[in-house]
């Protein structure tokens, strides 16, 4: 059974149709890259799958491990194992990263029918994971994304992904605004995360992230639907030739 199955998804935002029939099937253990020019609907696809308000699903279904989540709340999707790394992570003043992460982890534990981890166990794990991403321990005490640099915000998204251990992680332009060093750290985090039971969707504009995280499948989203799918070489073609040919193809 696929982990994520998107079938003929049509979505509009404020009376404008953005996605006009997207099909995408992701099996366990796979990494998919969704590429495309600006305004092609990449972020809409990422957000609508995560259940962000403001996107209206006109038709089609989204299934997570066989379960229809098309109209589920964002929280239900998250608890069933879906994770979205935000393109623009949100700042929450006055709430520490630690407090935020603990609330998220506790919710997941309770949803699995387990007890919440002890504060000490949680702190130990969060610190060790933060360290792997080059984030110092003081990072956990700071307000969520408050005053973080662009690179810290993206690393914080990966930190959350590693701690929440989703079944499917959608990374929405996680590479944007990262220098090469930060990109390598983020890529190492994603590569650590990958295993045969989970899957990753990389939404990106550029192929450079794919030098570090090698995808199994590459899809080109343009004009609201996937117009071409292939292997890694498709990303290289896009990088060489740009997106101009797509507009001709549409």
């Amino acid at each position: 059974m696929p982990l994520l199955d998107i079938e003929d998804l049509h979505v509009q935002v404020e009376d404008q149709v953005i996605l006009g029939g997207v099909h995408l099937t992701v099996a366990p253990g796979e990494v998919h890259a969704v590429m495309g020019p600006n305004g092609s609907g990449k972020s809409t696809l990422a957000n609508v799958v995560a259940g962000r308000p403001g996107y209206e699903v006109l038709s089609g279904t989204v299934r997570l491990a066989g379960e229809d989540i098309t109209h589920a709340s964002p929280e239900e999707r998250a608890l069933q194992g879906l994770f979205l790394a935000f393109q623009y992570p949100i700042e929450i003043p006055g709430v520490s990263n630690m407090e935020f992460l603990k609330a998220a982890i506790d919710s997941h534990a309770l949803a699995r029918g387990e007890g919440a981890p002890s504060a000490a166990a949680f702190i130990r794990r969060a610190r060790a994971t933060a360290e792997r991403l080059g984030l110092d321990a003081g990072f956990l005490k700071r307000g969520v994304n408050e005053g973080f640099s662009g690179g810290e915000k993206k690393r914080n998204e990966i930190l959350q992904m590693l701690l929440l251990e989703p079944r499917i992680a959608i990374l929405d332009e996680t590479d944007s605004g990262l220098d090469v060093d930060a990109m390598q750290v983020v890529a190492a985090g994603v590569n650590d995360f990958r295993d045969t039971g989970n899957a990753v969707i990389l939404v990106t504009h550029y192929q450079r992230l794919l030098d570090y995280i090698v995808p199994d499948h590459v899809h080109v989203l343009a004009g609201g639907s996937i117009i071409r799918s292939g292997d890694r070489s498709l990303a290289q073609t896009l990088d060489r030739d740009g997106y101009g040919w797509i507009e001709d193809a549409c």
């Binding site: 995560a50 259940g51 962000r52 308000p53 709340s73 964002p74 929280e75 999707r77 998250a78 608890l79 994770f83 979205l84 935000f86 992570p89 949100i90 929450i92 709430v95 407090e99 935020f100 609330a103 998220a104 919710s107 997941h108 949803a111 959350q160 929440l164």
Partner: peptide, 18 residues
């Protein structure tokens, strides 16, 4: 902000509380 919390599995009431 509420959506960010919910997308991490925190229910709406708890998100409001945070």
């Amino acid at each position: 902000m509420l959506f960010y919390c919910e997308s991490r599995g925190i229910d709406r009431d708890a998100a409001r509380g945070l």
